[in-house]
Design a protein around this nucleic acid. Sequence first.
DNA 1: CTCTTCATGTAAATCGTTACATGATTCG
DNA 2: CGAATCATGTAACGATTTACATGAAGAG
Lengths: 205, 205
Amino acid sequence: MALRYAILTALLDEEHSGYDLARNFDHSLGFFWQASHQQIYRELKKLSEQRFVASHAVAQEGRPDRIVYSLTESGKAALDDWVMGADKLRVLEVRDEFFIKLYNLHNENLNHIQHSLDLRVECMRGRLALYEKIRERRYSQPEKLSLRRQGVYLSLMAGIMSSEVHLNWCEMALQLLRERSGKLENSKTGAENKQSGRAGAASPA
Amino acid sequence: MALRYAILTALLDEEHSGYDLARNFDHSLGFFWQASHQQIYRELKKLSEQRFVASHAVAQEGRPDRIVYSLTESGKAALDDWVMGADKLRVLEVRDEFFIKLYNLHNENLNHIQHSLDLRVECMRGRLALYEKIRERRYSQPEKLSLRRQGVYLSLMAGIMSSEVHLNWCEMALQLLRERSGKLENSKTGAENKQSGRAGAASPA
DNA sequence: CTCTTCATGTAAATCGTTACATGATTCG
DNA sequence: CGAATCATGTAACGATTTACATGAAGAG
């Protein structure tokens, strides 16, 4: 039930096509709610049938028409009702299978896990850079924003803060694991242990 | 596909009933992967048919039997294979409809949003207290743990760090909104300055 | 005597993912 | 020429949620 309200919210300020919405609704909303284009098209159809959004085609040369959706008055009202309704008691639900893998850490997969962490670092740096740019461009003086834009600002800040802390965590984790794989390396070359071949290849401390 | 591996992971150290798993698998895994009891029972049945887990009933007086599941060798092997497999490129996916509501902030729902934030603060404090207790009891000297338990420790730390930062964020948000509702109050009651008391209480960076 | 907890489960509905399809355009 | 991007969609499947159901125990 939240996806439909996420879509209505993304249409508050300007109209969008399904394609636009799918890529990332607005900019920072995508951090707290993700959806594939199939979900969005399906939901847009339903919202359209219920007259919560209105659509009109915009012709383009060569490309297929864009079908552009905008929020109707009743859509706006439904959204406001939902916002005032009771919250789900689910707070900050993270779903990330990497942590399941981390529970299974052992010598044979240590390198693999370290590699995943490296990728995460890259990913988080990119995300942070994007968010920081948005922040500088559009939210540099939060006190002066309208109340609604302060809400958006706060969401953005939540995205920035949790990305930062996750980046810090990744680096802490990598450090701890490097100490470990360093010791592994030592005890292997020292005692001449010939384990499964590619156990401690990369990153010596 | 991740739920099944979460279940197998939870069974690594000790056997559990479906009921136990449903309440929260292990302790901190629940932070990164949630599932209802219906999902878990269904998955356990499948895992049982595939011989990835074994089950036996444990009789109890009065209450219905507990059906206790444990990891089999082939279950362990399947889990290890999955861990070594390619990662989903989805990093730190948060799904929290509160932020959709926050995008819709305006005068009419300001109080409601503030109240939601208060509840979040409570929730985060409770979660943090639980995690810190686990940390003190079982992970006070992370360097000395086995590699696998270091993985669990790192997951726990990720839970602690993101809960902390979310708590900070809530307090920052409340402060910003209190300034706003203070001004609202002022312009409403006229010149009388009766702010809500603790506008500068919390600690942003 | 009702409410909550323990403990398991079925059924239906919705949500989300993966795969496939179309047809023109631009990039290399 | 092959691949990627723009832009929309269908179909099938898998995951998740919500509602319902049972039956005994213990708390208030």
